[in-house]
Amino acid sequence: GKMTGIVKWFNADKGFGFITPDDGSKDVFVHFSAIQNDGYKSSDEGQKVSFTIESGAKGPAAGNVTSL
C-alpha cells in the first residue's frame, strides 16, 4: 500500500536519494525514475512524499513517488 515519508536527501546529479518513512521503518532508496512529477524528476530534502515499496535488484526501493 501507499506510505508517506520525508525525502532525507536527493542527489539530482546521480539521480537517487533516500526517503525516511513516517512509520519509523528503515530509510528507503529512491531512484529518479520512480518520481511521478511531470518534467524534471528530482526531489528536495524535506519534501513530504507518498510512495509504494517495490522490490528492486538491490533490495527495497520506493515506487510511485508523489509530492504531497
Rank of each mutant, 00 (worst) to 15 (best):
G1W: 06
K2N: 08
K2Y: 12
K2A: 09
M3P: 03
M3W: 07
G5R: 00
G5N: 01
I6E: 05
I6W: 09
I6G: 02
I6A: 05
I6R: 11
K8M: 04
K8G: 04
W9L: 00
N11W: 09
N11D: 13
N11F: 05
A12V: 12
D13V: 14
K14C: 10
K14H: 07
G15T: 06
F16P: 00
G17L: 05
G17V: 05
G17Q: 00
F18T: 01
I19S: 00
I19K: 00
P21M: 05
P21F: 05
D22I: 06
G24W: 05
S25K: 05
S25T: 10
S25P: 03
K26Q: 12
D27K: 02
D27W: 05
D27Q: 05
V28R: 00
V28K: 00
F29R: 00
V30F: 15
V30P: 04
H31T: 03
H31V: 04
F32R: 13
F32E: 09
F32L: 12
S33I: 06
A34H: 06
A34G: 08
Q36W: 10
Q36C: 14
N37E: 11
N37R: 09
D38T: 11
G39H: 11
Y40I: 12
Y40L: 12
Y40P: 10
Y40K: 10
Y40A: 10
S43Y: 15
S43R: 09
S43A: 15
S43M: 15
D44C: 15
D44N: 15
D44Q: 15
D44K: 15
E45I: 15
E45Q: 14
Q47M: 13
Q47V: 12
K48E: 07
V49Q: 00
V49G: 02
F51S: 01
F51I: 02
T52P: 03
I53G: 02
I53C: 08
E54V: 14
E54N: 09
E54C: 12
S55P: 12
S55F: 15
G56A: 08
G56Y: 08
G56E: 07
K58C: 14
G59C: 07
P60G: 04
P60Y: 09
P60V: 11
A61V: 15
A61M: 15
A61L: 13
A62Y: 02
A62W: 02
G63E: 08
G63S: 13
G63Q: 14
N64S: 08
N64Y: 08
N64H: 09
N64Q: 09
T66R: 12
T66V: 13
S67N: 13
S67E: 09
L68S: 07
L68V: 10
